[in-house]
Amino acid sequence: MALLELKNVCINFGGLKAVDKFNLTLQKGELVGLIGPNGAGKTTVFNMITGVYPPTEGEIRFAEKRTNSLKPYKISAVGISRTFQNIRLFGELPVIDNVLVAFHQHTHAGLLASVWRSKKFWQEEQSLVKKATGLLAIFGLDTLKNEISKNLPYGQQRRLEIARALATEPKLLLLDEPAAGMNPQETAKLMLLIKDIQKKFDLTILLIEHDMQVVMGICERILVLDYGVTIAEGPPEKIKKDPKVIEAYLGEEIH
C-alpha cells in the first residue's frame, strides 16, 4: 500500500506551468530524494503536498485519503510534516517553545482549562515539556532549550526545524534542502542523523536537495525534476549516468 500518491498533479501560476503532470508514489519506510536545478519546481511539489497551494489538476492521496483540498493544518494532523528551505522558525520564541507549538495539535486542555490552570492543565504542560526536552536531546539542542531561537547558529536552526517537524508526530517527513548552507562535514553528519531518525521514528522521508552528491549517499530512489517535468527516476547509480540529468545540470554537449 502506498503511503503517498501523487497522480498527474499540475499547478499553474497564471500562464506559467510550474509543475506538469507530476507522478510520485512513496511506499512506507522509503527515503526518496527529489532533485533538480534551481527553479525546477521541487519546493512547489512540497507546497502542494502540504496544502499551501492546492494543485490545479490531479490528485494527491495520503494513506488512501484524498488531501487535495485540505488546509495545511489539517494535513499536518493527518501525519505530514515539513521543514522549509529558508528557515522558518518562530524566531522570537525560545527553542523549546518552537517544539511545544508543534505538539499543540495533540493537546487537550481547552481555553478555559488554561485560564483556570486546572490540575489537568499542569500535568499536560509538564509532560509536554518533558517530551520536548527529550526530542531536543536527540538533536543535541536540549542544553539550549531556553535560548531565543533566532540567536542559534545556522546549523542548529536547521536541526531545530527538523525537531519541530517531528514534534507533530508525522508519518511522512518532507525535508526541503536540509543541508543548504552547510559545509561537507556538517552535511555528512546531518545525513547520518536523518537516516537515524528515520529508523527511530519509523518515518517515510522525501528529501529535496540541490546538490546531487548529498542525496546519492542516503536515498534509495531519486526523482529528477526540471522545468516542472520529471526527467528521470530510479536508483542513484542509474540517475548518475542518465544523459537527461547530466544535460539538465551541466547543459547540452556542443557538437
Binding site: T50, K71, Y73, F84, R88, H104
Partner: peptide
Amino acid sequence: VAAEAMGI
C-alpha cells in the same frame, strides 16, 4: 505559514 504547517 510555519504555524499552519505545524498544525496550528
